[in-house]
Design a protein around this nucleic acid. Structure first.
Lengths: 215, 215
DNA sequence: GTTAGCGGAAAGTGCCGCTATCCATAAACT
DNA sequence: AGTTTATGGATAGCGGCACTTTCCGCTAAC
């Protein structure tokens, strides 16, 4: 298959595919002559994955490139891939440790202790959690910490389900791929579901008969 | 307080504050002379909220403006505000209804029936959910649907906790604000926690002794 | 009375994800 | 065989976005 057909099959414009190759999101096709290359099914599959991570997952091009580099690494392990995927999600990271951040970190550490979690200092997710909580404090909503255990319970349930699901994927290739997809798209699914559940629960609690919550 | 002090207190540069006023994120100060204005505590509070929604929540400036317009609306209700907040999160929305999207929608409707959820057609969260699931199908990961009930259980638990928490906020003003903050920042908290839980559960399941999952 | 800060408007900046244009070559039609 | 179309590769340009800079005439503070 040449680039034109790859484009037709996936709906991704040819120049965009070329751009992805340059950016390291997609391996270049196998050269059959100095200026002809052929693409296989693996390329098509990878391209669809790239588009999903970019469009649905909301990752940046550079983040996808880094993540896929780990996926393609010879020394990959499921654990490493999961860590790499987790590290590409979430915000940029804020190194300031003001008063609220310290309080938030303490709250997170207490939660981790209750949960038996080991907080990995190199895990960006921990930093994201602390930052979000610190922001709550700064906005005068420190009481939000009271629902953290409910959140943790929910997070654990989802994480367990995800890993069970991933385990059913057979070979390493399948495990790694469903880990990436599950981590990134799963986050989108969970967030959307939470919003659906919110609106439903709110209709019960605050329902004002004035119709849907709308846009 | 004049704009310079507002800037000093919040750490937001003066030109950025001016930009936010122009964009409708922040009411302009009260004019004391043709070209002097004074800002109060409400401005400071609102400015902090704006920064939180932008930086931590990841919302776009236009989305924050729309959301705050609903918050400031005289006819606001908690239910409407929640709907408005939910509508600003998530992707742009894809109107194509291909084969996978139909299957995904069926899956979501079946889930809603099991859960007793009412799917509001005007709710962007439903569309996000369908889109993410359709993407899973397109990537050949339709078996992900098997964990949807676990996700739903978790989402419901979190939604219930959120609404209980919001209910404790006293007056309408407080309820509305904690609804916005809880919806937007809560999503960040839940996502981060899920990633923390993933890495912990993965260390148990796939732990390879080779140290942290790292970046 | 000088200097710093202000409100308001308009233009400019830097990043990012593409998109357009070129070129020489190769493939596909006729 | 000859013309049209597509390709790989490289470079430049574009549109959106969140600011930032610059400018102006005016005001407040030392």
């Amino acid at each position: 298959m040449r680039i034109g057909e790859l484009s037709r099959r996936t709906g991704v414009p040819v120049p965009t595919i070329k751009y992805y190759v340059r950016a390291g999101l997609l391996p270049s096709g196998e050269l059959t002559s100095p200026n002809q290359a052929s693409y296989g099914e693996a390329h098509e599959r990878r391209l669809r994955l790239v588009r999903a991570l970019l469009e649905v997952g909301g990752l940046k091009v550079a983040a996808v490139a880094e993540l896929l580099a780990v996926v393609d690494d010879q020394n990959r392990t499921p654990h490493k891939v999961l860590g790499a995927a987790a590290a590409r999600l979430g915000g940029p990271g804020d190194d300031d440790e003001d008063e609220e951040a310290v309080a938030a970190r303490a709250e997170v550490e207490a939660l981790a202790a209750r949960r038996g979690w080991k907080l990995d200092e190199s895990n960006a997710a921990t930093a994201d959690l602390v930052q979000a909580l610190a922001t709550m404090f700064r906005l005068g909503h420190g009481e939000f910490a009271r629902v953290l255990d409910d959140y943790a319970e929910a997070a654990e349930r989802v994480a367990r389900a995800d890993l069970d699901h991933v385990g059913r994927s057979g070979d390493l290739e399948g495990i790694v791929e469903s880990m990436v997809i599950g981590t990134v798209l799963g986050e989108v699914v969970l967030a959307a579901m939470r919003r659906v559940a919110h609106v439903n629960a709110s209709a019960d609690k605050f329902g004002d008969g004035s119709g849907p919550a709308g846009a």
